[in-house]
Amino acid sequence: MIDNLTPWDKVKLARHINRPTSSDYISKIFDSFIELHGDRYYGDDNAVVAGIAKFNNQNITVIGQQKGKNLKENKKRNYGMPRPEGYRKALRLMKQANKFKRPIILLVDTPGAFCGIEAEERGQGEAIARNLYEMSDLQVPILSIVIGEGGSGGALAFGVSNEVWMLENSIYSVISPEGFASIIWKDGKKAPEAAGLLKLTAHDLLELNIIDKIIEEPEELTLDSMDDLITIIKSEIEQFLERYASISENEIVASRYERFRSM
């Protein structure tokens, strides 16, 4: 555990190129994973990796926002910024999980939903809104884990869950510190200051009751140092699944509704 990090330090850590990505967590947490593609409307978004995984012999639908580890990969993954197709693929597979009674685990790691001409043309706002709306009514337990960056509405569309956890040095914010600084102070360079004001760290958000759990990180989180973290996450997921196994579908929906209703 690293102490005395400023919020801005955490922003930089959350975005670090060496930080493990969704596919790293998927391959290490689950016994098997079969990827499924496409939104059935327009295309397949590489910024979202989704499929069916096995966890202690239980089927789980897993969906993650996927960043790349180098420039080439990031071009393919669009730096983890989903287009409407990505949100629609996620929703399609969440509804499928609901049909087959599979719990859903979502991995959040995005600077935000992609903003560009084609994203607007294909209804970025509608796609995000639809996810919030439909997720609120799914009868299976949903868990979101913010593993890196939780960028605004683009992250929330993966976050209408029964529980939301954050890795210790991940962030979750209504707007990027740079965006905030340039709007409020007309000066993007004041981002470090904005990071402090925005209350975007895991500890701040636990205090605000926006998230439910913080998962401690090793001192320098990379692919090589993540094994202990994986052990902790697996044990936490096991307990999560146990907690919800005995709860009725109605209660799962009602408790999720109350979680957000009280905010």
Binding site: L132, L198, I210, M263
Partner: peptide, 23 residues
């Protein structure tokens, strides 16, 4: 859009209103 001066609490209003609409 969301009111930045209220941080993440403003973002959560998107989920709250959408869930109420579903009901």
């Amino acid at each position: 859009g969301a009111r930045m001066q209220e941080g993440m609490v403003s973002l959560m209003q998107m989920a709250k209103t959408s869930a109420a609409l579903k009901r």
